[in-house]
Design a protein around this nucleic acid. Structure first.
Lengths: 203, 203
DNA sequence: ACTATAATCGGAGAGGCACCCCGTTCAGCA
DNA sequence: TGCTGAACGGGGTGCCTCTCCGATTATAGT
């Protein structure tokens, strides 16, 4: 709304420092998780900690930028799934892919999604918004062919992936995450079987 | 294995300080979440921070003690559910109760369960072990009457509750948690309907 | 080229936290 | 009542986040 888009481009040195910080952060988050020391990141990037804080006012804003590329790649892959699979399978296999990423990124995506109130989740243009929007597209199609319960929302799906990656943080590997996601997927599947089953399967 | 159980009782003043710390921690965790400042807790309890660290070598050990009562109450309630409901309903309504507690306790239970490797989860006697054992009892019965898929484990159930409470931490209220739990419950429900439905519902 | 100037930097410092050392105090027992 | 070791807690260390502000430097304009 405000003309804040009229931002002159960063000065060359500022742009270089920005890139260095992002690179250092990428490495640090991968190694130490989302709680990595910002000071350490600044040190590794060869800049003062003030510079880091000027470019990234919060830990979250840094996580956001570091993840952005990967998140966008995963979302691009969603379009691939949508083209090559039927709606239900597309959604489910994309969720598996997303979960695999969320788990291996050491809770990175997780931290992105947290402490943003759910209201701005679809509006703030952050990774959470992108993911929710992408999930929403696949979800719509899956619901149209009755592969998924109609009362499930895109936020629920993202929240589940988020929840799972938080819960297995620091656990062995991805096996429990897979098991949990299987359960969640079974839970969102359309229970049209129930309609058919109530009659024959009733006790 | 070691005779460490032969611990003489704490001195009277130590016992008093211990209780004060637990009381202060209870309040602090409720107000500020599981990340509350330990120093602040010591201050409020009127003890030196060294005393706090002597009684509770880790944040987790303090969380453990603070939660213990509530967790045991919830587990006692499980036996109630088991007596008054059929196995499936008992498990599911108990899971709802547990989730409600986990969500309102500001991620407290969550932090308890985390960073304990899943191996010791059933052995360390902590809150996670109690919860997993309790869930296991209800789960067994539910699986015996085929109300729940046979491949679901007690750890999965606890992990789900844990995951959900982590994911909605700081969100509005418990509505999303309820929705997520509904999905998870639908996911663990026995899909005996599928056996009946594959034939008639097949495309 | 050269300068003026505003954008950017980063050392240093304030304030907090977890955790520990070690001299002091006092509860509990003989 | 006097001893003794269990328990205390002030204060220190090291790390963290975040900010202030004087020094630096890229860049537009001449």
């Amino acid at each position: 709304m405000v003309g804040s888009a009229t931002r002159r481009p960063l000065r060359a040195d500022a742009r270089r420092n920005y890139a260095r910080i992002v690179a250092a952060a990428e490495e640090a988050f991968a190694t130490h998780g989302a709680a990595a020391s910002l000071e350490e990141i600044a040190r590794r990037a060869g800049v003062g900690s003030a510079t880091l804080h000027r470019h990234f006012p919060s830990r979250r804003s840094l996580l956001e930028v570091v993840s952005r590329d990967r998140v966008e790649a995963v979302c691009a892959s969603a379009r691939e799934h949508a083209r090559t699979s039927e709606p239900g399978a597309a959604l489910f296999s994309w969720l598996r892919e997303l979960t695999a990423y969320a788990v291996t990124s050491r809770g990175l995506a997780s931290s992105l999604l947290r402490d943003g109130r759910d209201a701005d989740m679809l509006e703030d243009g952050g990774c959470g918004a992108i993911l929710t929007a992408t999930a929403g597209e696949l979800l719509d199609r899956a619901q149209q062919v009755d592969a998924v319960r109609p009362d499930v929302r895109a936020e629920d799906l993202v929240a589940f992936v988020n929840a799972i990656s938080l819960a297995v943080e620091g656990r062995d590997d991805g096996v429990q995450a897979d098991r949990l996601l299987d359960i969640a997927i079974a839970g969102v599947r359309s229970q049209s079987c129930q309609h058919a089953a109530t009659a024959p399967g009733a006790p």
